[in-house]
């Protein structure tokens, strides 16, 4: 019975996922090719919110059941019925096309190791972190579509469900570390970007990412992720979306807490606030679509939207 169900849901899932993938693929867009997103920081053209409107909803058996339904409908094609990342999209590509159809393996929820966390390296993410990742999507047009169009209840439900795949959430509850705080990013200018380059050298980011940020540092060859698959240090001059948020706060979080499950380490203990923002703007300045003018305008627009949201509350 379980096998039958699994097979049936796989077939459904492959269909669903291809549909999602198709509908999100911009005309002529190919992985690795320059595709202009909506803006420097926001890549998905879909409507919906990335920031949760509430702190979540209480987990009940009913919510979990609803979460399973959402998971079966939208996620198993990639993440697999067992939540181990061995969904049909991952497995069948290997089987029939001789190569995986995704550049990175879908997350294995049974290990509960997450890249995108506001919490220190080695900690579980907060529910809000998961909410944002699922809403924003990861490396759009390559890894995982954005699900920000889903009703919030669906998103909280599927979060409760994917957490049920691992007992880490129970075992480590008493050791859970607090999220870091990320303040408001300063407006970028030339001096800040230049200072950031010095911080980049001081912190030896170039050992992996290379002196020009092209992902070709001396430690780059042979790196692997937790799944044992080859992984390259991000090429900052590549136009694709980051795994995390492309906003300055997102880059800040990436090198502060690290991307667990990958060689990308946490630098939480080494930089002061000013140096962090300098480094952030240096990294963002390497992106092909970057110029100071646009970045400043978008920062301004972001601040206005935020203000408007606060005023509406």
């Amino acid at each position: 019975m379980k096998k039958l169900l699994a097979t049936a849901s796989l077939v459904v899932a492959v269909g669903a996922v291809s549909l999602i993938a198709l509908s999100l693929q911009p005309a002529g867009g190919k992985a690795g090719e320059v595709t202009t997103g909506r803006s420097l920081f926001d890549y998905s053209a879909a409507t919906g919110n990335i920031e949760p409107a509430s702190d979540g909803i209480p987990v009940t058996a009913r919510l979990l059941e609803h979460g399973e339904w959402v998971f079966r409908g939208l996620c198993i094609g990639c993440h697999g019925v067992e939540g181990d990342g061995n969904g049909a999209v991952w497995e069948l590509g290997e089987q029939y096309a001789g190569e995986h159809q995704l550049p990175r393996k879908p997350r294995d929820f049974t290990e509960a190791v997450y890249k995108l966390r506001s919490t220190p390296s080695g900690s579980l993410p907060t529910d809000a972190d998961l909410f944002r990742s699922i809403s924003r999507g990861l490396v759009l047009e390559q890894d995982m579509p954005a699900f920000k169009f889903l009703p919030e209840r669906d998103r909280w439900a599927v979060i409760a469900y994917i957490k049920s795949f691992s007992d880490r959430w129970e075992e480590e509850a008493e050791w859970q570390e607090d999220p870091i705080e990320i303040g408001e990013p300063p407006m970028p200018d030339v001096a800040m970007v230049d200072a950031g380059e010095k911080v980049y050298e001081l912190m030896q980011c170039e050992q992996c990412h290379g002196p020009g940020g092209k992902g070709d540092g001396p430690s780059a060859p042979g790196l692997e992720d937790d799944a044992g698959l080859p992984i390259v240090p991000r090429d900052f001059t590549d136009a694709s979306q980051f795994v995390g948020s492309n906003e300055p706060q997102g880059v800040y979080q990436t090198f502060t807490t690290g991307l667990d499950g990958t060689p990308m380490p946490s630098y939480a203990d080494f930089l002061d606030e000013e140096q962090r923002w300098q480094l952030v703007w240096y990294v963002i300045s390497l992106r092909p679509e970057f110029d100071l003018e646009t970045a400043r305008n978008e920062m301004m627009a972001m601040q206005e939207t935020k203000l408007a949201r606060l005023q509406n509350q």
Partner: peptide, 25 residues
């Protein structure tokens, strides 16, 4: 790592850099 799963990953960019982590399991 615990098995294959990352337990923590911290950079130590220069001599005498020190970081404290927690072994949770």
């Amino acid at each position: 790592y615990y098995g294959k799963a990352t337990a923590f990953n911290v950079a130590l960019p220069f001599k005498d850099a020190k970081v404290t982590k927690i072994l949770k399991r």
